[in-house]
């Protein structure tokens, strides 16, 4: 699997993404946000977490019009997989590659802790190695993770099974208490219609080693690797 991780000014989770991918990917390129031409044989593009452009104006807004995003759009239309993590999810929504928007956390606090996610749809290249409805522990670290979309958009996402992950309690129940940021219907990650693009607020690349608390993120990268 040939993958690439994009670095924007202010991205700070790019190295973690590279290290996580190196266990699973034969070649991991690091790309600067001003690149205007990407290799056509890329299998996976990762847009990492961090504070691209300082989160100025709106998180992910300025990154979404960086030159490289035209290439990301072009390749995603050809079926290349794109994984947006945290700030990467924000960049994907601002780019209109994913529906909805990530707003300020409901309690207006930066939240940094491990949460429980339920795998809502394991019929995707990103989640096929997970069991359906599996509960996994993944860390979050964000201020603007409150997922919102208009009612018609949410209905479309839910009806088509495009919710990838939901925040749940240890028993797998969706509850207000298990929702760290106020996201509508506890949505933590969504796919695009063809499910080759996934955006998620939690950090799977920070859950690939039990020494750092959880290795539940491994199955995502194994799912992707198994395709190649």
């Amino acid at each position: 699997m040939k993958s690439a991780v994009i670095t924007f000014p202010g991205s700070n989770c790019d190295r973690d993404a590279v290290i996580a991918l190196q266990k699973f990917s034969s070649k991991v390129q690091r790309l600067w946000h001003n690149e205007t031409s990407l290799d056509n044989d890329l299998d996976l593009i990762v847009i990492p977490g961090g504070f691209s452009f300082g989160d100025y104006l709106r998180s992910g807004a300025m990154a979404s019009i960086s030159p490289i995003m035209q290439e990301v759009k072009r390749l995603s239309q050809k079926g290349v997989r794109v994984l947006g993590i945290c700030n990467g999810f924000q960049i994907l929504t601002e780019s209109n590659l994913l529906p909805g928007v990530l707003m300020r956390n409901q309690k207006i606090k930066f939240i940094c802790r491990e949460i429980n996610l339920r795998v809502e749809n394991n019929d995707s290249d990103f989640t096929k190695k997970y069991k359906n409805r599996q509960i996994i522990k993944i860390p979050i670290a964000h201020m603007d993770g409150n997922y919102f979309a208009e009612p018609n958009t949410i209905k479309n996402i839910e009806d088509k099974g495009l919710v990838a992950f939901r925040y749940v309690d240890e028993n797998g129940n969706v509850s207000d208490d298990s929702n760290p940021n106020g996201s509508i219907f506890n949505i933590a990650g969504v796919f695009n219609e063809s499910k080759n693009i996934l955006g998620m607020m939690p950090h799977p690349e920070r859950a690939v080693d039990n020494n750092t608390g959880s290795s539940d993120g491994n199955l995502m990268f194994e799912s992707l690797k198994s395709l190649f």
Partner: peptide
């Protein structure tokens, strides 16, 4: 439309 405003919200 392209940068300053997120039309969803």
């Amino acid at each position: 439309d392209k940068l300053l405003v997120n039309k969803i919200i």
